[in-house]
């Protein structure tokens, strides 16, 4: 069993990872899709529902 201090640290790391995932997941998919797509789409097509 980890000590109290380590537990606190683990919880902080998990919470930080959760926040990163919350704000970064969708941009990450869009980045991966945008760079790997063939042919590469234009940015306006990516975000606007109408274009």
């Amino acid at each position: 069993m980890p000590s109290e201090e380590n537990k606190e640290r683990i919880i902080r790391v998990v919470e930080f990872g959760r926040v990163v995932l919350h704000y970064g997941w969708i941009p990450f998919i869009i980045y991966v899709g945008y760079t790997r797509s063939n042919p590469q789409p234009s940015l306006i097509k990516l975000v606007s529902p109408l274009a």
Partner: peptide, 16 residues
């Protein structure tokens, strides 16, 4: 549902 296929291989799609 508005789906936009931006690439087929690999598949890349955004939906609103």
């Amino acid at each position: 549902d508005l789906a936009k296929n931006l690439s087929v291989l690999p598949l890349f799609q955004v939906t609103h």
